[in-house]
Design a protein around this nucleic acid. Sequence first.
DNA 1: TTGTAAGCGTTATCAC
DNA 2: GTGATAACGCTTACAA
Lengths: 343, 343
Amino acid sequence: MARVVTLADVARSAGVSISTASRALNGIGELSDETRAAVAAAALELKFQPSPIGRSLRTQRTMTIGFVVPDISTPFFAACLKGAARLLGASGYRVIAMDSDRSVEGEIEALRTLVWNRVDGLLLSTTGLTGGEFEEITTAWPTPCVFFDGVLLGAGAGCVTLDNVGGMAVLVGHLADHGHRRIAHVGGPQNESSAVERSTGFKSAAREAGMTPANTLEVFSGWDRESARRVAHALMDDAEPPSAVVASSDDIALGCLRAFRERGMSVPRDMAIVSFDDPYYGELLEPPLTTLKVDPTEIGSRAGDLLLEAIQDGDGGATRGDRDPACVRLPVELNPRRSCGCT
Amino acid sequence: MARVVTLADVARSAGVSISTASRALNGIGELSDETRAAVAAAALELKFQPSPIGRSLRTQRTMTIGFVVPDISTPFFAACLKGAARLLGASGYRVIAMDSDRSVEGEIEALRTLVWNRVDGLLLSTTGLTGGEFEEITTAWPTPCVFFDGVLLGAGAGCVTLDNVGGMAVLVGHLADHGHRRIAHVGGPQNESSAVERSTGFKSAAREAGMTPANTLEVFSGWDRESARRVAHALMDDAEPPSAVVASSDDIALGCLRAFRERGMSVPRDMAIVSFDDPYYGELLEPPLTTLKVDPTEIGSRAGDLLLEAIQDGDGGATRGDRDPACVRLPVELNPRRSCGCT
DNA sequence: TTGTAAGCGTTATCAC
DNA sequence: GTGATAACGCTTACAA
């Protein structure tokens, strides 16, 4: 059984002590060129791979990052993961992805396991963690944390989100340009920061567009298509239904679309719709969906970037306080298709 | 700085030796009830969490599973990950997901890192690893591996795939029932097992349905929509284009749909189409897509199951040889909608 | 320039 | 029943 090659083997083979071998391989301290070469040769010869475990035990770093999102099987979060993993991988970090199952308890449990496993950093999209809960978890073992998409303001070492307010302005403005005066927003769960931001963004954009409060309807659903569908039905039952809807996400838009279809309504004739997120199948829907293009991969990599910085700064993120946690806001872009009334 | 609580702290607090504390907490050996209780109390009191790193160093197990797929941001693989992570998590395993970037080199690199990090097991969807390459990697440190979706027959401790051949039979049969006699298959890359199986499945299903070889067209593309689109165009340029297409995946179907639309063809009137994979937006496409429902989450959890067994059997998977590696084949189900000609 | 030795936090093999 | 003590594989003072 191919016993694993240890540093001791390399040292013996090179005829030096273990510590010399270690120093040679890590390029630390003053070594004679001969020994350095001899050790390198021996390591190569034996195909030595330093044990991450032994190293971690000693250095107290695991080169591992924890990644927690509400639902990893969602294209959006899967892409975030990809972006983060790629960026962090380039710096030698592995990432462990965990699912919070769209619940705060799940989130807490995931974070606990991750911290317990001594990850060097955390990437978290929260669905409503409180500052206190967050403190309690990271206080057990200080671990820098960068929030993304679902953020907890003032906590952690930074955050990256989409320009939710700006996006809503674009969406509502576009609908208004099409002549709509009674616009509804189907929003996401209000315990999540991005859902909240989109809601406030919607309201101020509506005001900006000259709509009266009475004409700005707003209802909330989960992020899933099914609950969006139900909510959309309820919206249509309003005494005075809207003439256009802005959906807070692609899945919500899909739910709405389904509801409209169930009522025999034609989009955009009977009802216009636009949405956040630009799913790749948007163009092939009937009608093609007008959306806000976002780049989830970028969210992940920017978050990874910020985390790397925080880790460098050391102190488990304790060294902020002087400067505010960095917050990146990623731009979004309108992708006009037919569902809004464009031709 | 909240120094971390170690076993030594617990032992001291309980007034016993470290080894006794260890035994008490692990429930090993004969201990007096008092000491057992005292240790438990101390551990609880101090909120002791055994260090996974210290433990790993000693036990040579990391309680970590490596997960490698061509593209993690794909809904299909993301769902596999979710299924696997959930099942393995229940047994105390964490999973590290890595992207092979749809290349064999990427796969090899990912596997190397994972094995180097001493994962206790591997879950792999390969895009064309050879037996030799696989051997070389896992021989460095024997690690049980279960293949899924993209499998390497005869290698590893088992595999789980979809019933690709049966699925093709259903798809082709359905199209034949609609009266189609000239059916084309837009297949996936032929270095991947599932793509190959679907291809052979297509050919035998076509024969079964009484089609002549001359009437069974077959072209291959990548799994991405863009290359499928190009290939579909080429297909239409055939002297005698088919009247129906079966797409080897949802993304391939999307690419075809786009090509058909670009040519001003109406589906299903000018061209019928059915496909593997049942994306959730399938119903809202124009026309709604007839598909084969599959359950990627199940693929992940079944693969996890098999892997757990293999790990129990120990010997790094060396103990097969007597019995063949278990191979699970998951059923698929037809989801008829309008793109095939159904009304 | 190199070697010795301590220690990271466990578990496991001995003695007692 | 319980306690020393030796690993596990590595890094890093401290000596030489």
